[in-house]
């Protein structure tokens, strides 16, 4: 060090990748901690009854005590959600490919698809329980799948068909066929849209699985447990279940968002470069 007293500048990548990341997180973490403290103080100070709102410390304690049951419940419900998500998203994606290829089909079916997408499908939960069995995972998987299907299909179709005309003309000028255009232009163009659908799908799949459970699910599943605990006035346990459901939902969404970042590293929006 030839200039003692001067602070060595950090390597440029360091600030970007680490320092700024950390600094970005600080306010959010602070809000979280303050929120929890406020909640704790509120419950203790006003002596709020636990059936209205248990204290966070009690919930955390229950999380630990009931960890085995919660783990089993989480794994059952997550399996329902994941299964439904995979099936629903795959079918939605395939349907979009078919509809994008045959325009006539898409003009004939899209109004119904849009209408169907607006139906609150969870209303069918009791019915699918009748159709596919109350205690099995299948009925919940089906609801989650149906919920995921529409956003993925509609978004993917939008991505496949919203390619600028000149991007297609360029491929035509190279005498490229429909399949080549699909693979090299339409699919990459649709990727951001597909991921939007997939992310929305994670949320819907969790909702579908848990609401499905509420109408009678596999014994020990998260939805069934939350309901049972509420019924026997075990509110700390019920809240612990809700916390677990939230954490699964966030991790599910987050892992898809992470995959998006990796797969679409080329996308201008993810690089912080020129916006357009």
């Amino acid at each position: 060090m030839t200039t003692p007293g001067l602070v060595e500048p950090l390597p440029p990548g360091f600030l970007n990748r680490f320092g700024r990341g950390l600094r970005d997180w600080v306010p959010a973490v602070l809000v979280f901690v303050l929120g929890i403290l406020f909640w704790e103080a509120l419950v203790r100070g006003l002596e709020i009854q636990n059936f209205l709102l248990p204290a966070p410390s009690d919930i955390v304690e229950t999380l630990w005590v009931e960890r085995d049951q919660l783990w089993t419940a989480a794994s059952i419900t997550f399996r329902e959600a994941l299964g439904g998500w995979i099936i629903g998203c795959s079918l939605g994606f395939l349907a979009a490919l078919v509809l994008a290829r045959w325009r006539l089909l898409s003009t004939a079916l899209m109004p119904y698809a849009v209408a169907a997408g607006a139906i609150p499908i969870v209303a069918f939960a009791p019915i699918t329980n009748n159709w596919f069995g109350v205690t099995g995972l299948t009925s919940k998987v089906v609801i989650a799948a149906v919920l995921c299907f529409f956003p993925v299909m509609v978004n993917t179709l939008k991505g496949l068909t919203s390619v600028p005309a000149s991007a297609i003309e360029l491929m035509h000028s190279y005498a490229a066929g429909e399949f080549t255009i699909l693979r090299r232009v339409r699919l990459p163009n649709a990727l951001p849209y597909v991921f939007t659908g997939l992310k929305v799908g994670t949320v819907l799949a969790m909702i579908g699985a848990i609401v499905g459970d509420y109408f009678g699910g596999a014994s020990g599943s998260l939805g069934v447990q939350i309901q049972r605990w509420t019924g026997i006035f075990a509110f700390e346990e019920a809240w612990a279940g809700i916390v677990v459901a939230s954490v699964i939902g966030i991790l599910f969404y987050g892992s898809v968002a992470l995959a998006e970042r990796r797969v679409m590293a080329w996308h201008p929006s993810l690089r912080g470069g020129r916006p357009e």
Binding site: P164, S166, A167, E169, L170, S173, Y174, A175, R184, V185, P188, N189, L191, W266, H267, P268
Partner: peptide
């Protein structure tokens, strides 16, 4: 079909990916 054209459009039509 014999790929005898090189076309340059007004907007450059480059693929972001």
């Amino acid at each position: 079909l014999d790929r005898e054209y090189g076309i340059v459009f007004q907007d450059s039509v480059l693929y972001d990916w």
